[in-house]
């Protein structure tokens, strides 16, 4: 499974912390990091495989979240995990428009998110093994 991470180059210290944690946790996975909105948009226009990729969107502010909403059409049919700035009703409501497989609020450890990604990775391994034996 590959991880595609959008984390704006201007994001706060929180962003840097998250990136560091992610790279430490998933050394064995390929992580593609996109640090500008345009680069991320271009990546979304490339071919992708739902079962083999997870898109992690780091939105450290409401404005960043709103900016990502403009890409909603391109994010259709993608597996999305979202990091949002707060848990206010408005923010959560915007977050839900991405139909994320999981979302969490900016924090110091991201233990929850890492556990979800680990489970997703295991699921993908099981799926690949089953399809090798002709079961789906």
């Amino acid at each position: 499974m590959d991880l595609v991470l959008f984390i704006d180059q201007d994001s706060s210290q929180n962003g840097k912390t998250f990136k560091k944690i992610l790279y430490q946790h998933f050394k064995e996975l390929e992580i593609q990091t996109l640090q500008t909105f345009n680069a991320f948009k271009a990546r979304l226009k490339q071919a992708s495989n739902y079962d083999k990729e997870v898109f992690i969107l780091f939105a450290d502010s409401k404005s960043r979240l709103n900016q990502l909403i403009s890409l909603i059409d391109l994010l259709e049919s993608k597996r999305i995990v979202l990091i949002i700035p707060d848990d206010s009703k408005v923010t959560v409501s915007i977050a839900l428009q991405f139909f994320p497989r999981y979302f969490t609020i900016i924090n110091d450890t991201y233990n929850d998110l890492c556990d979800v990604l680990v489970k997703m990775t295991h699921q993908e391994i099981i799926k690949t093994k089953l399809s090798k034996y002709g079961r789906h």
Partner: peptide
């Protein structure tokens, strides 16, 4: 109102309850 997705496959057992 909201449409809330819960992906039961991706959630580890210890996270499901609090999620």
């Amino acid at each position: 109102a909201e449409f809330v997705v819960v992906d039961c496959t991706s959630l580890p057992e210890h996270l499901i309850e609090s999620t």
